[in-house]
């Protein structure tokens, strides 16, 4: 123990506990404030899918290994299956449903169609949310795209076409 410990840390107060039963959670999603009654154990993914009927984010593994559930929290791409919804209070959640503006497809969505960057479509919302974020992160080299999209499995293996879609959006910018 260091000598500094003489100045013992002020003992904090025990924090208020919410749950384990359903609690009211204010969840800002795609620019709209939603209120859901959920148990604290509910993941952001399940809150979106089961409570807000926003089923664009997909449940591929529920273990953080596939990327199909990728959404943005405060503008960053994250895995909604390993994020608790209750922890997102006061943060801005963006899902694939919030990407198109006034019904006009985002450039990445158009590029995915144009480059045939999907087949079954199940990983696609996660791929697109990841791809848009990747370019905003400034990781735009061809090799960076390969690596930067490797957190999103596509079992149909449309990978070369996914890269082509990302590059086409990059090159248009």
């Amino acid at each position: 123990m260091s000598a500094d410990d003489q100045a013992l840390t002020r003992r904090g107060t025990v924090l208020e506990e919410r749950g384990p039963g359903p609690v009211r959670v204010a969840l800002p999603v795609n620019g709209t404030e939603h209120a859901v009654e959920i148990e604290p154990r509910v993941s952001l993914l399940d809150a979106l899918r089961e409570h807000l009927q926003l089923t664009g984010a997909k449940k591929g593994c529920d273990q953080g290994t596939c990327g199909a559930c990728t959404v943005w929290v405060d503008g960053r791409r994250v895995l909604s299956c390993l994020t608790l919804a209750v922890a997102c209070e006061g943060r801005e959640v963006t899902t694939i449903e919030g990407l198109a503006e006034d019904g006009a497809l985002h450039g990445m969505q158009q590029a995915f169609i144009a480059e045939d960057a999907f087949q079954c479509g199940y990983c696609t919302p996660g791929q697109i949310m990841s791809a848009v974020a990747l370019l905003e992160e400034g990781r735009t080299g061809d090799e960076e795209i390969k690596e930067g999209m490797s957190g999103n499995l596509c079992r149909c293996a449309a990978y070369p076409n996914i890269r082509a879609a990302v590059r086409s959006v990059r090159d248009r910018a």
Binding site: T9, R10, R11, G12, T13, V14, L15, E16, E17, R18, G19, P20, G21, V23, E39, P40, R41, L84, V86, A87
Partner: peptide
Amino acid sequence: MRPITYSRATDPQSAVATV
């Protein structure tokens, strides 16, 4: 997943005291 409760810590001391 078993039921859990959730607390958001606002200062380190309280977090440490709680856990």
